[in-house]
Write a protein that binds this DNA or RNA. Sequence first.
DNA 1: ATGTGC
Length: 492
Amino acid sequence: MSGSLVTKNGKNVVNKISDNQFQIEKDSSRGMNVPVTIFANDMLISKMALDRTLDQAVNVTTLPGVRKHMVVLPDGHEGYGFPVGGVAASDFEEGIISPGGVGYDINCGVRLIRTNLLESDIRSNLKHLVDSLFSSIPTGVGSEGAIKLTNAELDDLLIDGARWSVEHGYGIDSDLEACEEGGKMNGADPSDISTNARKRGSMQLGSLGSGNHFLEIQKVDKILDKKAANIMGITQEGEIQILIHCGSRGFGHQVCSDYLRLSEQAMKKYDLNVVDRELACVPNNSTEGESYRKSMFSALNFAWANRQMLTHWTRMTFQKVLNLTEQDLEMKLVYDVSHNIAKVERHKIDGEGSRDLVVHRKGATRAFPSGMKQLPLKFQSIGQPVIIPGSMGTASWVLLGSTKSMDLSFGSTAHGAGRTMSRSAAKRMHTLDGVKKKLESRGIYVRSLTKNGLIEESPDAYKDVDMVADVSHNVGIATKVVRLVPLGVIKG
DNA sequence: ATGTGC
């Protein structure tokens, strides 16, 4: 491919800066406040130009107070208003906050748990392990968890996040320091949460959900950065790891819906106009902005509490099936990262010094470098573990945040593979047997609640996660540490 | 993603 690429709506020209960096220049005449920077390669960016990904990124640059640039990561694809796989930073004082900039699944995220087991320790028990996980962890749309909370208990959980779960017996103290924000976002306040969100939330606590959410038993395929891997507790190839990918379930979904509606109404009051109604937003410093932040933070905490509970049941299942005690079976949390979040961070902007920005990461992972005070002590010297799940049944990656991310991507990198085939296309092109056979041929045992759940998540409906990790590594926003491959999967 | 699609 040579020359420049034009986006789907025909209005935006993409310039290639280098092999892995592209740009859409700022055009003030079309209301753009900043340029768009895209980290990709020729193949990935050509796919982004086929749908609305890049045009949506340009739309975001027209929002009030957007700073520096809109970032699109190599896994970018179209989403609700804002593209998924993007970072939009808005000025704390003069900018906006937008529910669509976080997305429906608030704090969709992943956590990686390392074990002291090798593949040979579990091969003969793999099916039993997967079956037991499948029966002890509720999956599927609308699935209900084992826990029923009163309103007052739910309030406590929404304020304390994973800490609530640990204090109620689901996990250990050291789990908390291995979570972004310690698994508890300060400033969460559930007082504006709707009754409807509460109703859905309290029922679904402690469940995995559906779509691309999964729990995988994986093994270490390759270690590329031994020093970083060792500090994370990952020591050798063949070591068993658990990856949990899920979010805030119907609770966060309802919070997002509630605030999209509220934002659309409040925009009239603030005389805010947006080029796409899906970009509904409110001034960050407004009553409505504060209300969304408090409620969205509550949903972050819901998701962290939820992943913490699933961690506990995973540990119990492994102990029981393998007949090992808590002492003999090490299952330590490596790290837990959020993929859908907005929070205030200080970032340098060329010519303006440092500013407080509302960093919207939608399908993006924080990738802070060494020395950042937000990181737990043991990662201060190397940087933050970044966990990137592939699609079900494909590889996943652990990367390491790097100083370049602070200059290039507001301290962020990609979050996953990103779809390349719609759910309906995946259904047309695959059968249940075909997908199962393909996974089995790779030695992967899957339990799924629904037929469509499996077909829609067929590995070839997604981009190549290795390519996504490569772009991140080559640009230097996060570097490769460990490649993981699945052995067993449970999903909705 | 989701008590799944205008």
